[in-house]
Amino acid sequence: MTLPHPLPEALVELIAQRFKIIGEPMRIRLLDQLREGEASVQELADATGASQQNVSKHLGVLHGAGIVGRRKDGNRVLYAIADESVLELCEGVCGGVQRQLAELNELLDGVAR
């Protein structure tokens, strides 16, 4: 799909909202954990070291945005990534950060010599 140029204002607002939602460090940690598959709030709390209340709050935001889905399994609720494009976005950003760090390390190595 090709995006129109210039981007319509309504689309700009939606894109900015998506970045705002995933721009929270705890939400990135939760998404990273969910890359391994479904998990409950308790499992995610244990994996991230956060409280169940904090994890639930962030999962609620991610769920409301359609980034994660949830399903009932007996008395547990399991969360999973519903929008795989968020992982592609994170991988792209991570690759950019790695390139930037490599360039900075090269500069520092050159100064140290």
Results as ranks from 00 to 15, higher is better:
residue 103 E to H: 09
residue 10 A to F: 05
residue 29 R to Y: 03
residue 85 S to P: 02
residue 100 Q to I: 10
residue 71 R to S: 09
residue 101 L to Y: 05
residue 19 F to Q: 09
residue 63 H to V: 04
residue 64 G to E: 10
residue 76 R to S: 10
residue 57 K to E: 14
residue 22 I to F: 05
residue 113 R to H: 11
residue 25 P to V: 07
residue 72 K to G: 07
residue 4 P to Q: 04
residue 91 E to V: 01
residue 31 L to N: 05
residue 22 I to R: 02
residue 21 I to W: 01
residue 1 M to F: 11
residue 32 D to E: 14
residue 55 V to Y: 04
residue 44 L to M: 08
residue 33 Q to E: 15
residue 20 K to Q: 14
residue 14 L to K: 14
residue 62 L to A: 05
residue 106 E to P: 00
residue 68 V to K: 04
residue 15 I to F: 04
residue 110 G to L: 10
residue 18 R to A: 13
residue 11 L to I: 05
residue 101 L to Q: 12
residue 31 L to F: 05
residue 55 V to T: 01
residue 42 Q to H: 11
residue 29 R to T: 09
residue 29 R to I: 04
residue 48 T to A: 03
residue 98 Q to A: 14
residue 81 I to S: 01
residue 11 L to H: 03
residue 90 C to L: 15
residue 107 L to N: 08
residue 25 P to G: 02
residue 63 H to M: 09
residue 40 S to T: 15
residue 4 P to W: 00
residue 31 L to I: 06
residue 39 A to R: 04
residue 78 L to R: 09
residue 8 P to T: 05
residue 93 V to F: 07
residue 75 N to A: 13
residue 106 E to W: 05
residue 10 A to K: 09
residue 101 L to I: 14
residue 81 I to Q: 00
residue 39 A to I: 03
residue 74 G to Q: 02
residue 103 E to P: 00
residue 34 L to P: 00
residue 16 A to Q: 12
residue 6 P to W: 01
residue 44 L to A: 00
residue 104 L to R: 13
residue 109 D to N: 13
residue 15 I to D: 04
residue 65 A to F: 02
residue 99 R to P: 04
residue 91 E to M: 07
residue 33 Q to V: 08
residue 81 I to V: 14
residue 64 G to A: 06
residue 103 E to I: 09
residue 20 K to D: 15
residue 61 V to K: 07
residue 15 I to G: 00
residue 43 E to N: 03
residue 44 L to D: 08
residue 102 A to I: 09
residue 85 S to V: 09
residue 1 M to R: 09
residue 102 A to F: 08
residue 25 P to A: 05
residue 72 K to F: 05
residue 6 P to R: 01
residue 76 R to P: 06
residue 112 A to K: 13
residue 29 R to D: 15
residue 85 S to D: 14
residue 100 Q to T: 12
residue 40 S to Q: 02
residue 61 V to M: 07
residue 92 G to F: 05
residue 29 R to G: 03
residue 65 A to R: 04
residue 19 F to V: 10
residue 17 Q to G: 07
residue 60 G to M: 04
residue 3 L to Q: 06
residue 21 I to P: 00
residue 41 V to P: 02
residue 73 D to C: 03
residue 63 H to N: 11
residue 27 R to P: 00
residue 45 A to E: 08
residue 2 T to G: 11
residue 110 G to H: 10
residue 13 E to A: 13
residue 109 D to W: 04
residue 54 N to W: 08
residue 75 N to M: 11
residue 61 V to W: 04
residue 91 E to L: 07
residue 71 R to I: 02
residue 20 K to N: 13
residue 94 C to E: 14
residue 104 L to K: 11
residue 63 H to W: 03
residue 58 H to N: 15
residue 56 S to V: 04
residue 101 L to H: 06
residue 68 V to A: 02
residue 88 E to R: 13
residue 43 E to R: 02
residue 86 V to Q: 01
residue 111 V to S: 08
residue 53 Q to W: 02
residue 103 E to M: 10
residue 72 K to L: 12
residue 80 A to C: 09
residue 34 L to Q: 06
residue 82 A to N: 14
residue 5 H to G: 05
residue 54 N to A: 15
residue 78 L to D: 01
residue 10 A to N: 12
residue 56 S to P: 04
residue 49 G to R: 03
residue 46 D to N: 11
residue 80 A to H: 15
residue 105 N to K: 14
residue 98 Q to E: 15
